[in-house]
């Protein structure tokens, strides 16, 4: 539980300094299209918003099925997908990408902690995702990972 007593006085700074190194951070992602699948609306919004700040084009999807639909109509460079989603989950999305567009790079995100979820990440690795990211993560970490994968 957060203690409101202390909350106002502190500012989270971890991992937020990286993008500021760039001269024009909004140019980093220009011309790069990403698909972001996350069932958590808040996270979807905040991630999308953050990545767009750096110039990426982001297609948000609330679940696996939406993600697959989006992929049919849009050519993307990278897919960031949560592994656990209602409806068709991350595993399905990855399988689909591997089948249709093996060149698309994938970052798999997991809720972390639970055995089953870890298993899911293992599955993802087996399926050939570029990177995995465990919650909670900072936006700076997300950005760094995206850039790292795209630069590979």
């Amino acid at each position: 539980m957060m203690d409101p007593d202390q909350a106002p006085g502190r500012t989270p700074t971890d991992g937020t300094s990286a993008p500021s190194d760039e001269a024009s951070s909004s140019e980093i992602g220009r011309g790069i299209e990403l698909l972001l699948a996350d069932d958590d609306e808040t996270l979807r919004t905040v991630q999308t918003g953050y990545l767009r700040r750096y110039g990426y084009t982001v297609y948000p999807a609330e679940d696996g099925r939406a993600a697959i639909n989006l992929l049919k109509n849009n050519k993307v460079d990278l897919v960031i997908t949560d592994m656990v989603m209602p409806g068709s989950d991350g595993v399905e999305v990855i399988r689909h990408i591997r089948k249709l567009a093996p060149e698309i790079k994938i970052i798999a995100i997991s809720g972390g902690g639970a055995t089953r979820r870890e298993l899911l990440l293992d599955i993802a690795r087996v399926l050939g995702v570029s990177r995995t990211l465990e919650k909670p993560f900072t936006m700076a970490e997300l950005l760094a990972t995206v850039r790292e994968v795209l630069n590979q």
Binding site: T11, T16, T42, L43, V46, G49, Y50, K135, M139, A140
Partner: peptide, 14 residues
């Protein structure tokens, strides 16, 4: 973790 992530994200944004 979703929540935490959100908190961390908005903190960063702030």
């Amino acid at each position: 973790n979703n929540i935490l992530t959100a908190i961390m994200a908005y903190s960063e944004l702030a």
